Simulated scan of single mutants.
Amino acid sequence: MQIKIIGVGKLKEKYLKMGIEEYTKRLGSYCKIQIVEVPDEKAPENLSDKEMAQVKDKEGERILAKIRDNEYVIAMAIEGKLVSSEDLAKELDQCGISGKSSVTFVIGGSLGLSPSVVKRANSKMSFGRITLPHQLMRLVLTEQIYRAFRINAGHSYHK
């Protein structure tokens, strides 16, 4: 299985990079994983609704340019379906069973995802109703993907 994580913005914090590198290395025995960063749109603090939509649309165009037609896309969104680690494991397992060998997770920027990206997604997923910085979400998602593969392999890591 091929897993791709598309995230908006460049990861700067060393501790986040190190954590993602560790889980990426661990995932190597389960899947091929790729992390893709797309540039975030620079924007001032106080944006109007129209300006926020424009920022999300520009970032959305960059995200969609990195997604191929055959990819199963999961949008990480606070309003998405609330899932457990076991739920994620089942979804990845179902993708494999149904021939969807390329799964792409999308994490939006600080303003979220554009409607065009959400529309392209095959599903919307949430790890909770809390707001996480999008950089931290990359680490959490990478760990949860690793946990899902461990669950599907019958290992006890997830306990």
Rank of each mutant, 00 (worst) to 15 (best):
E91Y: 10
E41K: 08
K56T: 15
Y157H: 09
L16E: 01
R147D: 08
V106T: 09
S114V: 07
K25T: 15
P115C: 02
C95Y: 01
C31T: 15
I6W: 02
G112I: 07
S110E: 04
E45S: 10
A43W: 09
L27C: 11
M1Y: 14
V106M: 13
R120Y: 09
K50S: 11
Y15P: 11
M18W: 10
G60Y: 03
Q54S: 13
K42C: 02
L111Q: 07
M76N: 01
R147M: 02
G80P: 13
S123M: 11
S98P: 00
S29C: 14
I63S: 10
E37S: 09
Q34D: 14
V118M: 05
D49M: 00
E61D: 14
K81H: 12
G128V: 08
D57W: 02
L16A: 03
S98V: 02
Q2S: 12
I6K: 05
G108I: 05
E21R: 11
I78T: 07
I63H: 08
T142P: 03
M52P: 00
M76T: 12
G112S: 03
G99M: 03
Y30W: 06
I5D: 05
N46Y: 13
K50G: 00
K32D: 15
P44E: 11
H158N: 10
I6V: 14
A153W: 08
M1K: 07
Q2K: 15
Y146T: 08
G128Q: 06
K14Q: 15
G108V: 07
G19C: 13
F127Q: 02
V140S: 03
E79A: 14
D49W: 00
Y23F: 15
I67Y: 07
Y15T: 10
Y23G: 06
S84T: 15
S98T: 15
D87H: 05
L111D: 08
I67S: 07
V38S: 08
V106A: 09
G108S: 03
R129S: 14
L64A: 13
L82Q: 08
R26T: 13
E59Y: 13
Q135M: 12
S98I: 01
Q54T: 14
S110Q: 04
G28H: 07
S85L: 02
E61R: 12
G9W: 09
C95M: 07
K56W: 06
I97P: 00
K32F: 13
V55G: 03
G99P: 01
S84H: 04
K124M: 14
R150H: 00
